[in-house]
Design a binder for these strands. Structure first.
Lengths: 226, 226
DNA sequence: AAAATCATGACAAAATCGTGACAACTCCGA
DNA sequence: TCGGAGTTGTCACGATTTTGTCATGATTTT
C-alpha cells in the first residue's frame, strides 16, 4: 500500500482528504517543521502539501526537501491559481498542484499519475537478461550464452558475473566481492577471487589473457565494462 | 535541447504551440499512425497528444505506446473536462492533461514539471562525478574520461587527481600531498610527487608540457584549476 | 563412487612504485 | 641583462607489490 504524507493545517480539509484517500496509507502533519521531518524520515511515496501553513510555508518546505535530495513526488494545494503559478515553476520542485476548492476526483487522478510515474522508475529495469558484446546473461537460466551456446558457468561464477553486470564500470574490490558474494560467515582469501576471475575470463572473454570486459584495476580490484 | 513531439491535427493549435514552445526542439505530426511511429523512433523527451484525431485517436496511441514499453511523459490535450477524466485514469498511461482552451503558461509549467521529473531518473545516479573542461572524473569507476574514453589512471594517480579537484584552485605543497595521500607511515621523497604530476599531466592535459589544469606554483607546490 | 565445484598455496608474470640523475626552467641579485 | 642557485620536468632503472596461472586437495553434488 502506497504511503502518502499530507501536510495541511486546516482540519476540515485534512478530514476530507483522509476519508477520500482511504485506499492509501496516510500520514499527516499539521505543521511545517514536523512535516519536513516526517517527509525525510519515512518511506513516503507521495506528499500532499498545502502552501498556506503557519510558521513554515509549503513553498519553503518544498524547496528544502529538494535541496536535501528528496525525489518524492509533491502535489501542492493552493487557494489561488496565481499562487499555483508561482510555486509550480521549475525552481520550486513541486510536481503538480490543485486549486482549492478542488475536485477530489481530479486530485485522485493526479496522485495516481504521479505514483505510476514514480513506480516506473523503480520497476522498469526488471528484465531477466543482460546483453553485452555478443553475450547474453540469462538470470533465470543461471548461465550466460555466446551467440546461443551456453558458456556453462558454475553457480559462483554466475553470481559473480551477475554482480559485475549489476555494477557496470564500477570498481569492485576483492573484499567487497567477498562480502557481497560469499557473505560474512565463510571468508576465503583474496586469492580465491583472482581464481574466479580467471575462470570467468576463460569463459566470457574471447582472449582471456587480454580481457575486454573484466578488467583489473591494480591495487584496487576489478571492474566490468560492456 | 529537449525534444517534444506534438501530435495534433488542428493547424491553428499546432501553430500556436510551435510559437509558444520555441525553447524546445519540436517535432510534429498531424496524424495518429505517423505520430506513433515518430514517438517510437526518435529520442523524444515528451509527447503532447491531442485526443481527437482522425483515424487513430489519442487514447489508443497512448495505450499503444505504453504497451510497447515507452516511458516518455505524455500530456493530453482535451476539449472537455469529462473527456480528460476518462483518459487520464491509471490504465491509459497519460501523465497529465490540459483542457482546451488551455493557458499556454500552464501547459509550459506542466511540461517543465514532467521533464524535470524525467530528468531526475537519468541524472540522479551520477552524483559522484566531477567535470572540468572536457574531462569527467568518475569516483566509482576510479578513472577519468575525456569525451567518453577512459584515460586509464592508476590508483595513485586517481587519488591525486581526486585530491586536486576537491581542493580546486588551492595551492598544495608537496609535503601536504605526501601527508594526505601517502600518509605518515611511508614517506617518499618530494621527487616522487613530481613524477606523479608528470604522469597525471600526460594523461589529462592536452599538451602536457604546457599544462592548463595542473599548474606548478614555483617554490610552493601545485594547484589545480578547472 | 564419480564428477563437478570450490578454496588454497606456490610461483611466474606484470604493473606500479619510488629513486636518482640530469636537463630545463625560474627567480633574484649583481 | 646575465649568471647562478635553487626548483621543477623528465627519463630510465630496479625494487616492491600485486596479479595471473596452475596444480592440488577438500568439499559438495550427482
Amino acid at each position: 500500500m502506497k504511503k502518502i504524507l499530507i501536510i495541511e493545517d486546516d482540519p476540515a480539509i485534512l478530514i476530507g482528504l483522509e476519508s477520500a484517500l482511504e485506499e492509501y496509507e496516510l500520514i499527516s502533519s499539521t505543521e511545517g517543521a514536523d512535516g519536513l521531518i516526517k517527509a525525510l524520515d519515512n518511506s513516503i511515496d507521495l506528499i500532499i502539501l498545502d502552501i498556506m501553513l503557519p510558521i513554515m510555508n509549503g513553498f519553503d518546505i518544498c524547496k528544502e526537501l529538494r535541496k536535501k535530495g528528496l525525489h518524492t513526488p509533491i502535489i501542492m494545494l493552493t487557494s489561488k491559481k496565481e499562487e499555483a503559478d508561482k510555486v509550480f515553476g521549475f525552481e520550486t520542485g513541486a510536481d503538480d498542484y490543485v486549486t482549492k476548492p478542488f475536485s477530489i476526483n481530479e486530485l485522485k487522478m493526479r496522485i495516481k499519475a504521479l505514483l505510476r510515474r514514480a513506480e516506473m522508475q523503480t520497476t522498469s529495469n526488471d528484465s531477466d537478461s543482460y546483453k553485452f558484446s555478443n553475450i547474453i546473461v540469462e538470470y533465470k537460466k543461471l548461465d550466460a550464452f555466446r551467440s546461443g551456446i551456453a558458456l556453462g558457468l558454475s553457480a559462483k561464477e554466475f553470481q559473480i558475473l551477475k554482480y559485475f553486470v549489476e555494477h557496470e564500470s564500477e570498481v569492485i574490490s576483492r573484499d567487497k566481492l567477498l562480502d557481497d558474494i560469499w557473505g560474512y560467515d565463510n571468508y576465503p582469501t583474496t586469492r580465491t577471487v583472482d581464481n574466479y576471475i580467471l575462470s570467468l575470463r576463460k569463459k566470457i572473454e574471447i582472449d582471456s589473457s587480454n580481457p575486454r570486459h573484466i578488467l583489473t584495476v591494480h591495487t584496487v580490484g576489478y571492474k566490468f565494462v560492456k
